[in-house]
């Protein structure tokens, strides 16, 4: 603040700070508060808004219950509200996306941070970035084409003789999971890369020198060191996946509804912004809860992620 003042003078300093505050308060905080407030109000004809029926209640939140459908967990079939089922599956498959991105990003980031030579590194990073230059919409459509029944993926697998009959990829949650993994894998890769790069290579060599096979060195030395990076990558991928609307909207099968699509249906097709807001806050709340539980289980502190 002091530095800013000295360097840019009074006028510019206040303009910077003013714009930052405007962005934070007016464009981020206030709309969220408006939605939070709206989430407790009933959906009324325009004439009744502000009238005696317009009172705060948890009615919108209660709409998640009702319309029970069968849902099998570990082979046991239970009846559960359709929206809760979608909600649970969205959280679960976001977790699956997070796990797959981790499994892909871990070896790759280790290679980039500790094995690849300084000369090839810029090229490798460029190759990783190039797909990002294409918009997410196009990339999702591209996956739609790749995964269709008579599409290139099935054609390739058939030609190689790996399968004898085309696989119906666009079914259930697989297309969303595949496309989300593709869309967000870099959000896992870069924090992991940063974490691994900060590891002193001598420690890897010291472990090997003491007789450690490669997998134990990873388990006891590299993985623990990379934990904060894994945590921040996992939080980002999980939150982005659970909150993604575009990817499921483009590529989803009829049997794999994403919770954001439920919210969109209520808000845009049902025109009930109040109930939509309530659902959106439930998603936010439970995602935060899921992340907190995961952090507790893996013994990660918030300050580790901030590093």
């Amino acid at each position: 603040m002091h530095d800013l003042y000295r360097r840019y003078g009074k006028g510019l300093t206040y303009t910077f700070i003013g714009l930052t505050f405007f962005w934070l308060i007016v464009l981020v905080v206030l709309p969220d508060f408006k939605l939070l407030e709206a989430s407790f109000r009933p959906y009324l004809p325009v004439a009744d808004i502000g009238g005696p029926k317009d009172v705060y209640s948890l009615g919108n939140y209660a709409q998640i219950f009702g319309n029970e459908v069968p849902f099998s967990i570990f082979g046991i079939e239970v009846m559960i509200a359709a929206r809760i089922k979608v909600f649970i599956l969205t959280i679960f498959y976001s977790g699956v996306v997070t796990l797959i991105t981790f499994l892909l990003a871990y070896p790759l980031s280790f290679y980039l941070a500790k094995v690849a030579s300084g000369k090839t590194l810029p090229t490798l990073f460029l190759l990783l970035f190039v797909p990002l230059w294409v918009s997410e919409v196009l990339r999702s459509f591209a996956w739609y084409i790749i995964l269709t029944l008579k599409g290139p993926l099935n054609a390739l697998l058939m030609t190689l003789g790996l399968i004898s009959k085309e696989i119906r990829w666009i079914d259930g949650y697989s297309p969303v999971v595949i496309t989300l993994v593709y869309a967000y894998v870099l959000f896992m890769l870069f924090p992991l890369y940063n974490a691994m790069q900060s590891l002193d290579s001598n420690q890897i060599e010291a472990a090997e020198d003491l007789g450690s096979p490669w997998w134990r060195t990873h388990l006891r030395v590299i993985l623990p060191h990379a934990k904060p990076g894994i945590a921040s990558g996992a939080v980002m991928v999980f939150m982005l996946s659970a909150g993604s609307l575009l990817v499921p909207a483009i590529i989803n099968s009829t049997t794999g509804n994403w919770f954001t699509q439920t919210i969109q249906g209520i808000m845009l097709e049902g025109q009930d912004w109040n109930a939509g807001a309530a659902f959106a806050f439930m998603l936010l709340l439970f995602c935060t809860l899921a992340v907190s539980v995961a952090m507790r289980v893996f013994r990660v502190k918030l300050s580790d992620i901030a590093k």
Partner: peptide, 27 residues
């Protein structure tokens, strides 16, 4: 290196900072 009967002490020691001392020694 993990097959040789040698033990190297690195210039910067390369102790494992996330393990307690005894686990370092017993690694």
């Amino acid at each position: 290196p993990n097959q040789r009967p040698t033990a190297l002490i690195f210039q910067n020691l390369a102790l494992f900072p996330l393990m307690p001392i005894w686990e370092n020694i017993a690694f």
